[in-house]
Design a protein around this nucleic acid. Structure first.
Lengths: 151, 151
DNA sequence: CTCGTTGCAAAGGATTTGCACAAGT
DNA sequence: ACTTGTGCAAATCCTTTGCAACGAG
């Protein structure tokens, strides 16, 4: 297990941008890594739970502002999976999001799935697909079967 | 040009569901077909413009409710391209949406691009990708070049 | 000490909902 | 007539913003 990227990049990248290392920023980043597919709301909730005796949660607005910063630093990414649900995840393990439009189930898939499509788009339109941001919607096996027996 | 699906399906499908054919529903459907990548707001605006002497626009809430109905009937589809921007399009010509996360430019692409990925997901996860709903985000050629010269 | 950060509360924008009236069948 | 659809306005939800106090460097 590499120690190289444990917690260092945050402090380092913040300094590089003239920004400051704060407890909130560390906590939000930690929360994004812990919760997969984290929404701002979920992150806020988690911080509130973890807020020990010191009462050290982060305000909603701070969560939003922090996520914005972390994204600019390249430490987290976000995707819109559907309606009002931006989902953040650590930038370290890029993966594809696959969402069932029926039950809302979120799965992850191999980014290579889009390699072919990405190449064609690059060649034909000069468009660079951002695999980490992509969300594929469709129907998961369970919902598909449920729909079939229904009709 | 086939007449088979011109305007008939609306009345037909509405009846099949015990719903009624109204002027608003016809107009909204027409607007979605006319405007590509139509947002609810844009649809409302268009209806307001077109509202002739009879003053026959549709209220915002009606637009939303109508789009919901039309989607249930399978006449229109929607995709979330980013933040608060649900985009509707006629279900007739399925296409992929490609959005530049930098400038917001929306392009359409060949659905076949995802054929390979769709097959693999179906085989590996039993997940059926809904190509019409998919939005790929990334960077368009113009923004990519702009970013390069900048740094 | 200086300037970035945070919390709080209020502002915004987009979508949804309740209800009485109008309209389709 | 009966029941669904519509407009209007109020209610929500999510996110952003202004500002004074706080804390990192």
């Amino acid at each position: 297990m590499g120690t190289e990227h444990g917690a260092a990049p945050l402090a380092e990248r913040l300094r590089a941008h003239g920004l400051r290392l704060t407890a909130q920023r560390q906590r939000v980043l930690e929360a994004v890594g812990a919760l997969e597919h984290a929404t701002p709301e979920a992150i806020g909730a988690r911080l509130r739970e973890q807020a020990g005796p010191g009462g050290a949660a982060a305000d909603t607005s701070t969560v939003y502002r922090t996520l914005e910063v972390l994204e600019r630093l390249g430490l987290v990414w976000h995707t819109h999976l559907g309606k009002g649900a931006p989902v953040y995840h650590a930038a370290e393990h890029p993966h594809l999001h696959v969402v069932c439009s029926s039950c809302g189930e979120i799965s992850s898939a191999d980014p290579d799935l889009l390699a072919g499509a990405a190449e064609r788009l690059a060649a034909e339109l000069g468009f660079t697909v951002d695999v980490g941001h992509v969300a594929l919607s469709g129907t998961c096996r369970a919902c598909r079967e449920r729909a079939q027996e229904k009709s």
